[in-house]
Design a protein around this nucleic acid. Structure first.
Lengths: 213, 213
DNA sequence: ACTCTATTCAAACGATCGTTTGAATGAAAG
DNA sequence: CTTTCATTCAAACGATCGTTTGAATAGAGT
């Protein structure tokens, strides 16, 4: 059976309980190392409920990420469109803030950063379909915007720099840091600010520090 | 039993065959999704040989990474020490090149980039012990060198920027590694060059593009 | 009242997992 | 040759995996 319609009863929260439990376990242990039994136990639901509501483990995985990434992307696109319609000229900074600041939006669940960070670390067979489904459109939109404010950077260069930016983002999104950075909400917000500064410099590349041989 | 001594026979390559097979499967599917049976089958050795030579799956994992990362770090430290003893003043560029260029050293096996990229994506319980064991010293050495050539950047800022640099590195190691589908060694080398440029700008942050509100 | 349908539940399916065992193998040492 | 010991091998251990089944439950519609 495919995903059932909205429950007739008032207690349709089984789906949400499964998603919540799966999300936390995915963040902590990754996809392959998280079992449906562990998810069902943490959610305090029957094991078969995971298949009833999501069809398969992969279906549950897609639902976990979609639930969180969809609102995040909406915030990102709203911020970008608000920028473009404001009349004032766009800057690299304003574009990057539209992209990164939604991570610390109070309406955004605090698990999103770790969840997105984890997603990028999964094997390609798992991450690629979800990344393409959830991020392709938004990434394209922001690259277009960046091209407009960086006319001196050609398409290929910008593509690479955008990738480096995503890599820097993923690094801070991971809760744990091999090099040892504490992870309070304040330090996370400060980290996002530093991320913006780092990526602005990398995207613009003022050609000042260069001293080629 | 712990790891046995060097084989008395000439055919001590069982260990190497297991490491080779494990390396390729780890890169492709990740740690949790790679079984010892798949490794033994690909290596064409008996299943029990994996436990005989490495004690456990985790022991094999550590051996896989250590075999590759140890020479990489030696190249990195050699390049840095050569720089420091050359007499000529260090630059951010020369330091970063000492750090990144070993990835395209001809003596370095082509699987290293993808392997390191994969390692950083594994759950903390797997990646943290290995990252600390293999990268802590080298990361510290290069951060010290960068502090000397970036005296205007305080310790905390440099720590973050180094972190972002590692993130950018991981991104290209995962996406554009020599193991990748549509990536040539040339495009990988070109990517490393772009990575250096991106990180130089991010580390120095010339404060020119800034236009704070 | 009865029917229908959505949901939950305990139980089991076959498959695969990491690990262990104990015997077979074979080259080196006495 | 005999002994020794590192190594390889087939086989099995118990545990856990994703998935399926069929009955039990209960609210909504007629």
């Amino acid at each position: 059976m495919s995903t059932p319609a909205i429950s007739k009863t008032g207690t349709a929260d089984t789906r949400e309980k499964i998603l919540d439990a799966a999300e936390l376990l995915l963040i902590e242990h990754g996809f392959a190392a998280t079992s449906l039994r562990a998810i069902a136990a943490k959610a305090e639901v029957n094991l078969a409920a995971t298949h009833y509501h999501f069809g398969s483990k992969n279906g549950l995985l897609a639902a976990v990420f979609h639930r969180r990434i969809q609102p995040l992307n909406e915030l990102r696109l709203e911020a970008l469109e608000k920028l473009e319609k404001s009349g004032s000229p766009l800057t690299v900074r304003s574009i990057l803030e539209s992209f990164f600041l939604p991570f610390q939006n109070p309406d955004v669940i605090s698990t999103i950063p770790a969840l997105v960070g984890r997603l990028h670390g999964e094997p390609e067979s798992i991450s690629k379909p979800i990344l393409e489904e959830e991020f392709l459109e938004v990434a394209g939109r922001f690259q277009e915007a960046l091209m407009k404010v960086l006319p001196h950077v050609d398409r290929t260069d910008l593509h690479w720099r955008f990738h480096f930016m995503i890599g820097s983002m993923i690094q801070i999104l991971r809760i744990q840091s091999p090099m040892g950075i504490d992870s309070t909400p304040e330090s996370f917000s400060r980290g996002i600010e530093r991320l913006v500064d780092f990526c602005i410099a990398g995207l613009e590349q003022a050609d000042l520090g260069k001293q080629h041989d």
